[in-house]
């Protein structure tokens, strides 16, 4: 009986998938991609660390003993510590409103959230100069009341918030839309208050997306250069953030110190990247699909 079914050699006869390219093309594409990455991403990143340690660990550590460097680090941390929670609350509120309710002007609000991504950071900074500068819209009033916004912490925080506010909202909106509101409705019918439902149902459902977006938001808040540069005034030891401090050191030919501070920023970027990858790998299903930054 079994002879009737002469074995068909499927494996050998398998047709090549239509989208598959020849081995040569495939190899070439991979080589190009890797070379590109090495040249433009890995090499510069490596160079930062090589330069930072060019004169040994001692010289590297000396860069952080300088009061100006310490104050830059402190300022950067302070700015991030204010801007990130701010955007976290705003982002969750905006996503909640957009994903769960219908209201006039919703499409406009979504567009508005994307604005900082499409505007050059320098312009984002200039907006605040136009508003709060001595010849700006509120400049006179602020001067009369002796309130300092530009060239001080408030201005830097405002510029940072502006630049980084899309991160949380853009991650959460598609995630919340996909999840719908029936779980929240179920919680409400079971007697939960709105806040209780938010805490016990909504928040756990978006936790990984939230953590992911806060990481990205934080990395950008600490690394922002353009907008902050316009509003900071570059006062050493007072309004220089880490990226601005790096620029000043570099312009003074103090390469070791410049790259040492830069290496901190680079390390922050690497840590963000690793945690982000781990989150993506572990909780891919719970992060919004198709809207990765």
């Amino acid at each position: 009986m079994s002879e009737i079914f002469s074995p068909v050699r499927v494996a050998e006869a398998r047709p090549a998938p239509v989208t598959g390219e020849g081995a040569g093309v495939r190899g070439a594409l991979i080589v190009i991609a890797i070379t590109f990455l090495a040249l433009f991403l890995v090499l510069p990143l490596g160079a930062v660390f090589v330069q930072a340690f060019a004169h040994g660990v001692g010289a590297y550590l000396d860069a952080f003993k300088e009061p100006d460097a310490l104050s830059a680090i402190r300022l950067t941390l302070t700015v991030a510590a204010i801007a990130v929670p701010f955007n976290l609350v705003f982002g969750v509120a905006a996503s909640w409103a957009i994903a769960k309710f219908e209201f006039p002007g919703k499409a406009f609000l979504i567009t508005l959230i994307d604005l900082p991504f499409s505007v050059s950071p320098v312009v984002s900074g200039l907006i605040y100069v136009l508003l709060f500068g001595s010849r700006g819209l509120f400049g006179g009033w602020l001067q009369e009341h002796n309130i300092q916004i530009l060239f001080a912490l408030p201005g830097i925080v405002l510029a940072t918030i502006f630049v980084t506010f899309p991160f949380v909202a853009r991650e959460l909106i598609p995630l919340m839309q996909e999840q719908g509101s029936s779980e929240e409705e179920a919680a409400l019918t079971l007697g939960a208050s709105g806040w209780h439902a938010f805490r016990t149902v909504t928040l756990p459902n978006i936790r990984w997306g939230l953590l992911y977006s806060v990481l990205l938001c934080n990395a950008r808040a600490m690394g922002e250069f353009g907008a902050v540069s316009v509003v900071s005034g570059h006062i050493r030891g007072l309004t220089n953030t880490m990226p601005l401090h790096v620029e000043i050191l570099y312009n003074e030919y103090n390469f070791v110190a410049a790259f040492a501070v830069a290496s901190l920023l680079a390390a922050l970027a690497l840590v963000t990247l690793v945690v982000k990858s781990v989150l993506e790998w572990r909780y891919a299903g719970e992060l919004a699909a198709g809207r990765k930054h």
């Binding site: 029936s182 409705e185 179920a186 919680a187 019918t189 939960a192 756990p204």
Partner: peptide, 19 residues
């Protein structure tokens, strides 16, 4: 409000709390 109506609601797609 829905919380005080003391209704039990069962949804077509279950709406169980996943976590």
């Amino acid at each position: 409000p829905v919380q005080q109506r003391a209704v039990g609601f069962v949804f077509q797609h279950y709406a169980l709390f996943k976590h």
